[in-house]
Amino acid sequence: MNRILYTLLLLIFGLAGFAATAWAADGLISGTEFGAENEIIVKFSKAVDKAEAADPSHYIVFEESDPDIRLEISSVTVADNGKQAVLTFTDPLNSSKTHIVNVSGIGGVEQASSPVSKSYAGYLISVLISALLINNFVFTKYLGLCVFFGTSKRKETAKGMGVVFTIVIVVAVSMSWVLYQYALKPYHLDYLQIVVFIGLVSLTVQAVDTVLRKVNPVLFKSFGVYLVLVIANCVIIAVPLLMASNEYNYFETFMLSLGAGGGFLLALYLMSSVRERIELAKVPKSFKGLPIAFIVAGQFAMAFLGFSGLQLF
């Protein structure tokens, strides 16, 4: 059981180690990136005339989705070697969107353009971290509580439930994505979302149950009991619905489901560690069991509020 747990953790943090890939553009502009919240840094492939490069009217910047709305540039600072210019905007930029920088009349080049975006791997990691900590499904969205309180009495059960849940949710949500993108959406069957998604979950649970029973009976003995509980967990239906309403692509969907499963595992593990200790403490008689567990969960929820606003990339 521990080996699976570590493999999962390794997978999560291994993905975090992805190198960032920057957009490389040909021609005059060799690279662009976001600077401070209202800055874009433009790098030139050769030294350009400073007076030309410092003129804000030579730049046109807009968000890729809204080409008509041009963002107002308040000033341009050019580096001494003439190879880099920092565009300062009057308003802060929304760095989660791709911006387009059009340059004209600099260095004898008629026009050059380059997209500016945060590195995609970084964005994916932020989806993962968001589902794992900032929008933890248990402590900040209050989902999956029945199973959460039911299986957090012992660390062993907490780990088993968390790992099984993570595996099932990743498989089920991946299938939901395929079905949603290639069947529900093209044929306008959106109203069948709930039926299809929950049906896929029960199918996955049944399949994992059958396969595990034949392939690895030992593992089935320790994990089998949790499989039935997966379907009673609200998170398993909330994640595909979120995926559908946000129009996520496959990688984002994968990260979201991995984060949701990992977040559930994390919440269960934290809670079970506390509940094992509460059993030794003197709790008022009428608060024994569930009531005190709820109050502890409330404190966890307040602690998790501290993650809001966390931004890594």
Partner: peptide, 21 residues
């Protein structure tokens, strides 16, 4: 506040247990 939901449910459960006892 959203996170107080846990506290309220916990306190009410404890209260009902106490009444019943």
């Amino acid at each position: 506040l959203p996170s107080a939901g846990f506290f309220v449910v916990g306190l009410m459960m404890g209260f009902f247990n106490w009444i019943e006892a």
